[in-house]
């Protein structure tokens, strides 16, 4: 049953300062509205609980993708279309570009924003695994200032984030350090959805591997835990043991311990776990092939 549209009040501040002062004045009252691709669906099915919405559309401080030698800054209101069509993002941050392309279909990509995807904090969101694998930093802003934190620390539990009630996500920052070594980074993104397009993920995996910098290894899963999950223990096993079959088996055992998938409307815990292990194995075997190429100097 549809929500009761007249009950929803929307404020449309003209500046970021105004938006932040509204949030500060009435903490928790105003829910930010960006591209609407999540909130309008909740409204349609009658479950959009917060009746006070803060329309962020047009806030210049939150838009645009800017490039500096050290980093690429993606404004929170950037749409996935803008992201996937950005040439530098495509070459330097391919996991993010792949994630953006896997979201919904074109009409959704044209409206859905990266800030909304993050703030919604669904464990099934497509961009967070890619962002974590790229070592993204998130910038939060409030009336009293702004702060940056590692994006990997932003999600704390099911639908729980570090975003305070008076804060907005201003931007995602991608460090370009990897641009120096990026040519040898091996990236792997796989969304296992219910179909090829217009799908919500059942499992999502973003992996990154560098043959010469074991510290660059990232194993990040979506949809298999209360929140997006970087599997640090499993990473450590590979970093310590290499890519031989025995270590890969140890990594799979570790991953089994790290993930906590559930049964839901889209899949089963059993399937999610098994496929996650398969994805890890596929990734590590490909990584080993890359490594042997590097070792052979090819």
């Amino acid at each position: 049953m549809r929500g009761y549209v007249p009950a929803y009040e929307v404020k449309s501040p003209e500046t970021l300062t105004e938006a932040l002062s509204i949030l500060q004045a009435q903490p928790g009252k105003w829910k930010p509205l960006a591209g609407g691709t999540d909130l309008m669906v909740l409204l349609e099915s009658g479950v959009l609980e917060n009746r006070n919405l803060l329309n962020l559309q047009g806030l210049k401080e939150l838009t645009g993708i800017s490039v500096s030698p050290a980093e690429i800054t993606i404004g929170a209101l950037s749409t996935f279309r803008q992201i996937l069509e950005h040439d530098l993002l495509k070459t330097e941050f391919p996991l993010l570009a792949a994630a953006a392309r896997s979201i919904g279909a074109i009409a959704i990509q044209n409206r859905a924003t990266i800030g909304g995807n993050i703030a919604n904090a669904s464990p099934a969101a497509d961009s967070p695994p890619a962002l974590i694998a790229h070592d993204a930093v998130i910038e939060l802003v409030s009336s009293t200032g702004s702060r940056r934190l590692s994006y990997a620390e932003f999600h704390q539990g099911y639908k729980k984030t570090q975003l305070a009630t008076d804060e907005l996500i201003r931007a995602i920052i991608l460090p370009r350090t990897q641009a120096d070594t990026g040519s040898n980074d091996f990236f792997f993104y796989r969304k296992v959805g219910t179909r090829k397009a217009q799908a919500i993920s059942k499992i999502c995996f973003a992996g990154r591997f560098h043959p010469c910098s074991p510290g660059n290894l990232r194993l990040v899963f979506g949809s298999v835990a209360p929140t997006v999950l970087r599997c640090i223990q499993t990473e450590a096993i590979i970093q310590g043991g290499g890519l031989d079959l025995k270590t890969i088996q140890k990594a799979k055992d570790s991953l089994t311990r790290e993930l906590s998938p559930i049964d839901d409307i889209r899949s089963t815990a059993e399937y999610r776990l098994r496929v996650s292990l398969n994805l890890l194995e596929d990734f590590l075997i490909l990584a080993r092939q890359k490594q042997s190429h590097v070792e052979l100097g090819s």
Binding site: L33, G36, M40, N110, R111
Partner: peptide, 27 residues
């Protein structure tokens, strides 16, 4: 469908393809 899944309500908004069931008037 009313939820951006079927595309029957597709229109162009400022030149971009959008699902008109997912765009609130305020925007």
């Amino acid at each position: 469908c009313g939820e951006g899944e079927c595309g029957a309500c597709s229109v162009l908004m400022n030149g971009e393809l959008v699902n008109s069931c997912l765009v609130p008037a305020v925007q």
